[in-house]
């Protein structure tokens, strides 16, 4: 796994590994098994794979019944359908009883691309985060998606894993186990904190590199567990740098930006800029075109970082001395 790969592929590979390790793991899909990559599990373990057809409400209900009977179901479809079409089912039949269902949804965010707004989940993280007891994971690359899937299987209780469609570069280590609830500090820096999740982690790293060339030190946080949020690490870097930029392939309402804002405004109010989709819908286009259109490139992050560093009163000069 060295060449770029979609996070959904890491998920599909992890399912096969889980299938071998644990006979209680079962997988369900809603007619998108090739896209979500559950097809890999379906081929190896056909007796433990259940297709619900194009019926997301029933997909989640079946998963709940399997979980209530001691199995560890992974239910997959596109993020927009998993969360929006089955929201009340997830609330009533999964989250409220706290059943051990893993909802692994691919095609999160606008990088779904050409299919357009109807297939681009930009509020899935907000919806899942609002559910009491729901754990929300957003792996940054295929390695992390693989490890996050293994970790989710070990975790007792409902988990939402957001996966993506496009091939993305690998930035995390393949062998590093995923710790749910822990922010990964990918880079240290004293002037600004860039907190990102999913595909945007790579963008934040590129931005940090560019900021370095401009003489700024940027810390980069991979917030791959959106809930429960690692407040300690976030607060440490927020207070150390005094300025935060969040970057997410999601609406700025209810996702990473909101989660960070909630913690900072209560415990460490520092200037914050949230980059993401701004109260609007997605549209058709190539993924890189869409990221450009919605202001989610490394250049946009650099611009936001410079702006916020200025707002807080300049660089933390002493730290660079």
């Amino acid at each position: 796994m060295t060449k770029p790969m979609a996070t959904r592929e890491g998920y599909g590979q992890a399912l096969v590994e889980l299938g071998r390790r644990n006979e209680r793991v079962v997988v369900l899909d809603a007619d998108l098994s090739k896209s979500t990559q559950t097809v890999r599990f379906a081929r190896e373990f056909p007796e433990r794979f259940f297709n619900a057809g194009v019926a997301e409400a029933n997909l989640i209900g079946m998963a709940a019944g399997l979980a209530a009977s001691g199995f560890i179901p992974f239910a997959s479809t596109f993020a927009i359908f998993a969360t929006q079409r089955a929201y009340n089912q997830i609330f009533q039949s999964v989250a409220y009883p706290g059943l051990n269902v893993k909802i692994a949804a691919s095609h999160g965010g606008i990088t779904v691309g050409e299919d357009g707004a109807s297939h681009q989940a930009i509020d899935d993280l907000a919806l899942m985060r609002a559910l009491p007891g729901m754990t929300v994971l957003v792996p940054a690359d295929a390695h992390e998606a693989y490890q996050a899937t293994l970790a989710a299987a070990e975790w007792e209780g409902p988990v939402y894993i957001r996966l993506g469609r496009p091939t993305v570069p690998l930035i995390t280590s393949p062998d590093k186990p995923f710790t749910i609830g822990r922010i990964q500090v990918l880079r240290e820096g004293e002037d600004v904190t860039l907190a990102a999740c999913g595909h945007m982690v790579k963008v934040a790293l590129e931005a940090a590199e560019e900021l370095k060339r401009k003489g700024y030190g940027a810390a980069v946080l991979n917030v791959s567990t959106l809930k429960p949020l690692d407040r300690e690490t976030l607060l440490h870097w927020a207070s150390r740098t005094g300025a935060v930029v969040t970057v997410e392939e999601h609406s700025i309402i209810g996702g990473l930006g909101s989660a960070v804002a909630e913690v900072l405004s209560e415990e460490c109010p520092v200037p914050l800029i949230r980059l993401g989709v701004r109260d609007t819908f997605g549209q058709s286009g190539k993924p890189h075109e869409l990221l450009h259109h919605y202001g989610l490139t490394a250049g946009n992050v650099v611009e936001a970082a410079e702006k916020i560093i200025k707002r807080k009163g300049g660089r933390n000069g002493q730290s660079d001395a």
Binding site: V26, E47, R48, F50, A57, N58, I60, G61, M62, A63, A64, G65, L66, A67, A68, S69, G70, F71, P73, N88, Q89, F91, Q92, S93, Y96, P97
Partner: peptide, 23 residues
């Protein structure tokens, strides 16, 4: 055996339980 109240959901859960029993 199951938390219910929002109508229409119990049979899906029953399908899951019946599949589990078969497995």
């Amino acid at each position: 055996e199951m938390s219910t109240g929002s109508l229409g959901q119990g049979l899906s859960v029953g399908v899951g339980m019946a599949l589990a029993a078969k497995l």
